[in-house]
Nucleic acid binder design. Sequence first.
DNA 1: GTGAAAGCGCTAACAT
DNA 2: ATGTTAGCGCTTTCAC
Lengths: 325, 325
Amino acid sequence: MASIGDVAKLAGVSRSTVSLVCNNKGYVSDETRKKIEKAMKELNYIPSELGRNLKMQKSGIVGIIVPDIAHPFFSTFIKYAEKELYSRGYKALICGTAGREDVEEAYLQMLDRRTMDGVIMGAHSLKKERYLKIDRPIVTIDCYLADYIPTVHVDKRQVAEKAASLFLEKNRKKVVQLVSSHTIKNYENEKEQLFHELLEKQGCEVVDISIGYNTFTAEGYKDAAERIFEECSDMDGIFGVDMAAIACLREAKLRKLKVPEELSIVSIDGTYITKLGPEILTSIVQPIEKMAKKLVSMIILQIEGKQVEEIKAIFDVEIQDGETC
Amino acid sequence: MASIGDVAKLAGVSRSTVSLVCNNKGYVSDETRKKIEKAMKELNYIPSELGRNLKMQKSGIVGIIVPDIAHPFFSTFIKYAEKELYSRGYKALICGTAGREDVEEAYLQMLDRRTMDGVIMGAHSLKKERYLKIDRPIVTIDCYLADYIPTVHVDKRQVAEKAASLFLEKNRKKVVQLVSSHTIKNYENEKEQLFHELLEKQGCEVVDISIGYNTFTAEGYKDAAERIFEECSDMDGIFGVDMAAIACLREAKLRKLKVPEELSIVSIDGTYITKLGPEILTSIVQPIEKMAKKLVSMIILQIEGKQVEEIKAIFDVEIQDGETC
DNA sequence: GTGAAAGCGCTAACAT
DNA sequence: ATGTTAGCGCTTTCAC
C-alpha cells in the first residue's frame, strides 16, 4: 500500500507538501499540485487514517452504548445519531450491554484508550462513581450523573399530564402504570409520581407494577404482560412503554377484553412499532430524532473542546392519536 | 496523558519492556514487572490504541453497512454481530445508507483508509463493479457479488416450500407475493420463482406486487399495504416481509377481512415484531443470530489473512406457528 | 531478561 | 511556495 512518502518521492516533492494537497491546506502552486495529484492517482494512493489519528490524537469515532441495539427506541436513536454524526464528520461505534455486565466497562475503557473520542450513554448499569471518574467527553440519554454531564430527556411533567389527560377523558378509574427499576436515578420517579398525583386527584386509582429494568426483549415483555393481568384483573387502563403496551394489547385480546372500550392502553415512546398495526397505539411520542441530534451536537462540542452551556436539554412530547384509548 | 515512555522513565526501564508487560509477552523478571506495574498505576497509565493501531496496521473495527439501522431485521442482525465481534476482540462501526446515496461509498472508502479492518455489507446500492474493486476483507448478507466474496443466506428453496405448504394447507387459491426490486441480483428471484411454481402446480394463482426496495419505514410499508388491497382485492393469501405483512394485517382489519379465516398472511423474516402481538404472525423465520455469527467468523478469517473455505453459508429456516394463516 | 533502534503514516511549526 | 525536522505512542527485531 502506497504511503504519503511514496507519493512524495514519485512527485519529487516533500511529504509535507503532499499532506497539504491531501487536506486542501496552505498554498501549493498549481504545477506541484498537478504533479502530486498525478502521482497519487498513479499509485492509487489513499491516505491512512491510522497515521492521521495518531498524529491528531483523535479517532473521529463516537461510541453509542445502549442496553439493547435491537430495541425499537434505541435502534431508532442509533439510526439518527449515526446520520447526524456522519454529517458532522464522525463515525458511530456501537455497543449493546444487556446481559453482559462487564461489557459496558470495557467500552468505557475504549474511551480512555482513545479508540473513541466520546461516548453517548444510553445504558448505565455501573455504579455512579464509575461515571464520575470519566474525564473524557460523555453525554447521557435521560440520566442524571452530575451537573457537568450533559443529558437530554423529555419533559416529564408533560408526559404525565398528557398521559393522565388521555385516561381522564375516558373516565378511567383504575390505571396500571408499568414502571422499571433502575440502578441509577434518572428522574424517572418524577414522571411516575406526577402521573399518580394527577389521576388520583381526579379520583382515579393508580397501581404501579414493575417490569424488570433489563426487560428489553419480546419474550420479557410478554411475560410481564401476563403477570400484569394476573396481578390486577380489574383495571381499565394501562400506561407503559411501547413493547409492554403491545404485549398487553395481546393479553387483553386473549382475555376477551375489548380495547379501547373496556380497557385503555397508552404507550410511552411512540416508536415505529406503535404505528404499524394492526392497531395503532395511542402514545406519548418522544422526539427521538431531535434528541439524537442534540446529543450529537453536545458530544461534539465537548470533543472539540468547547463549552457546552446547555447541560440539560428538555424536549416536548406529542400525543399520537391511536386506537387503543 | 501518560505515554509508554513516561512509564518507562518512572520505572527506570526501556519502553520495550513496558510494552512486553502491557501485552503479557516475552520474559520479564518479576522484579521489573512489579516496578513497571507500580509506575503504570502511579501515572494512571492507559495504553493508547492510536499508537498501537498504526504500528499494527489495524484498527480492530469491523463496519456493518445496512439500509436501515432501525429496521427490525437489521437492528437484530447488528445486535448479534456486535456481540460476536466483541467476544472476538473486534468492535462494530455502523452505517445506515437508506436515503443517502453517497454514504455507502464514503463508508467503503473507510475500509481503504484503514479506519475499518473489514466490512459486513447488508446494503448494496452501488454498481457491482464498485464492489469488485475492493481488495480488502468484505462479506455480504444475502448478496452474490463474486465467487471469492463470502456470503450467507437462507435456503431459498426451503423458504418457498415452507411458505407454499402453509398456503396449500389452507387451500388458498390466490396468493399475493410481495417482491422487492433490487439493484443487484441476490438470488431473490430464485425464491420468488419457486414460490410461483409450487403454488401454481397445485392450482393456486400467485400475483407479484412490488414494494420499493428502499421501503424500510413504517410509513412506506403502510402505503404499500394500501396499494396491495386496491390492486388486488380478491386474494386469499399474502406472503411478504414482516413489516409489510403487519401493515397488511391492519389493512385487512380496516376492510373487515377476517384473518386467518378469509385471508392468510405469512411473513418472511420472523423478527421480534411478529412475536409481540396483538396477533402472532405465522412466519418463515430466518436464524439471524446464527447468520450474524457466521458472517463475523468469515470476516475475521479474512482480516487475519486466513483462507475462507466456505464462501456460501446457507441456513435452514423454521416455521413460526402463528395466528395469521 | 532487557535495551537500543527503527519505523508504522501522518501533520505542523518553522525555516528558507 | 516548499522542504526540513520532529514527533504522535506503540511494537518488534536483534544485540547484549
